[in-house]
Simulated scan of single mutants.
Amino acid sequence: MTLPFVKMHAHGDDFLIIDRRGLDDPISAQVARRLGNRHTGIGFNQLAVVLDCADAAARIKFWNPNGTPLQTCGSATRGVAERLMHEAGTDTIVLRTDRGLLTCVRESGQRVSVNMGAPSLGWAAVPLAESMDTLYLPLEGDPAACSMGNPHCTFFVADLAAVDVATLGPALETHVLFPARTNVHFVQVIDRGHIRLRIWERGGGVPLGSGSCCCGAVVNGIRRGLLDDRVEVQCDGGTVTVQWDGQGGVVLTGSVEPIMQGIVYVPIG
């Protein structure tokens, strides 16, 4: 079958949008893997499938390029929001993901914000393999953990350039402490309102950016007392802003830009 698609990116974090409102959902793990292959498919960090929803403008299902589902994606949520706000002629929209109902707002300068909801800070919600303080995990490097609907493990380092993310990331992702595996962040604090971030993404490798990882890294930095409640996060692909008051939802703001659109052939069955 053929599927119309739009590809966008947010600070280098590229994602594919397939709008199936009013239609069936043909995306399986096999189809997601085929589309996610950067040599024989289209390639993406995340796939967002847009579906009908009774209590929001749309529901979004997310896939990693390796064919595993994920619960949330801040970049693709903002990309879908930008397109649907343009379609509806509005500057705000509510979308449903596995995180619940997320409010998105059009900001100045081609930027879109999304309230990603409150982080989960308990060990069982991350999840971790056993009861412990999520602010100080018993791992070399003294990381912190939280969940933004997907698990995050954050290391604070003195020199980000000295970290071999591609080597350390896979081992930490699959560590026995994380029964659902984890995203891994390496953070260099520039000042209380500015961090530099590199990421190993669960099911995806080393991306240029990640919205939910930016949120998780800032949440853990604020919990450690290292950061203020509004932080500029510089990833390899660009910069986003994350705001968190320590109690409520985490607000992610940044630009989203189209890359291409077209029709892709996908064998089904």
Score class of each variant (00 low, 15 high):
residue 248 G to A: 15
residue 155 F to W: 00
residue 147 S to M: 09
residue 93 I to R: 01
residue 80 V to R: 10
residue 20 R to E: 13
residue 38 R to M: 07
residue 145 A to N: 04
residue 149 G to W: 13
residue 17 I to C: 03
residue 85 M to P: 07
residue 180 A to L: 13
residue 111 R to W: 04
residue 214 C to Y: 00
residue 266 V to T: 09
residue 184 V to K: 05
residue 136 Y to W: 15
residue 138 P to K: 01
residue 58 A to I: 07
residue 217 A to I: 00
residue 186 F to N: 10
residue 169 G to L: 03
residue 197 L to S: 02
residue 25 D to V: 08
residue 10 A to N: 01
residue 206 V to W: 04
residue 174 T to Q: 14
residue 224 R to S: 10
residue 75 S to P: 01
residue 89 G to K: 02
residue 22 G to R: 09
residue 153 C to L: 03
residue 72 T to Y: 00
residue 225 G to L: 02
residue 183 N to D: 06
residue 77 T to E: 06
residue 253 T to G: 04
residue 202 R to H: 04
residue 91 D to I: 07
residue 50 V to N: 07
residue 251 V to D: 00
residue 235 C to D: 05
residue 170 P to Q: 11
residue 73 C to R: 03
residue 262 G to Y: 11
residue 148 M to W: 03
residue 134 T to H: 05
residue 261 Q to S: 15
residue 170 P to V: 14
residue 87 E to N: 10
residue 202 R to F: 00
residue 108 S to P: 00
residue 178 F to L: 12
residue 134 T to A: 06
residue 182 T to E: 06
residue 157 V to H: 12
residue 134 T to M: 09
residue 61 K to G: 08
residue 164 D to T: 04
residue 207 P to C: 05
residue 206 V to S: 05
residue 202 R to T: 01
residue 137 L to T: 04
residue 72 T to A: 15
residue 177 L to G: 13
residue 79 G to Y: 02
residue 196 R to E: 13
residue 56 A to I: 01
residue 219 V to W: 00
residue 71 Q to F: 03
residue 154 T to V: 15
residue 66 N to V: 14
residue 258 P to N: 10
residue 22 G to E: 11
residue 35 L to A: 10
residue 217 A to D: 09
residue 12 G to E: 07
residue 208 L to K: 09
residue 158 A to Q: 15
residue 24 D to A: 15
residue 91 D to L: 05
residue 187 V to D: 06
residue 128 L to A: 11
residue 184 V to L: 09
residue 14 D to W: 05
residue 18 I to T: 14
residue 88 A to D: 12
residue 152 H to M: 09
residue 123 W to I: 11
residue 134 T to G: 04
residue 212 S to Q: 04
residue 16 L to W: 03
residue 237 G to E: 06
residue 165 V to A: 06
residue 70 L to M: 12
residue 34 R to V: 07
residue 78 R to L: 08
residue 9 H to F: 01
residue 110 Q to P: 00
residue 24 D to V: 11
residue 10 A to C: 07
residue 109 G to I: 03
residue 135 L to W: 08
residue 109 G to H: 14
residue 54 A to I: 07
residue 205 G to P: 01
residue 22 G to V: 12
residue 66 N to Y: 03
residue 237 G to P: 01
residue 161 A to M: 08
residue 155 F to D: 11
residue 6 V to C: 09
residue 30 Q to T: 13
residue 154 T to Y: 00
residue 247 Q to I: 15
residue 187 V to T: 12
residue 122 G to K: 05
residue 147 S to F: 06
residue 57 A to F: 11
residue 241 T to M: 12
residue 130 E to A: 11
residue 167 T to F: 12
residue 74 G to A: 06
residue 77 T to Q: 07
residue 36 G to Y: 12
residue 209 G to N: 05
residue 61 K to R: 15
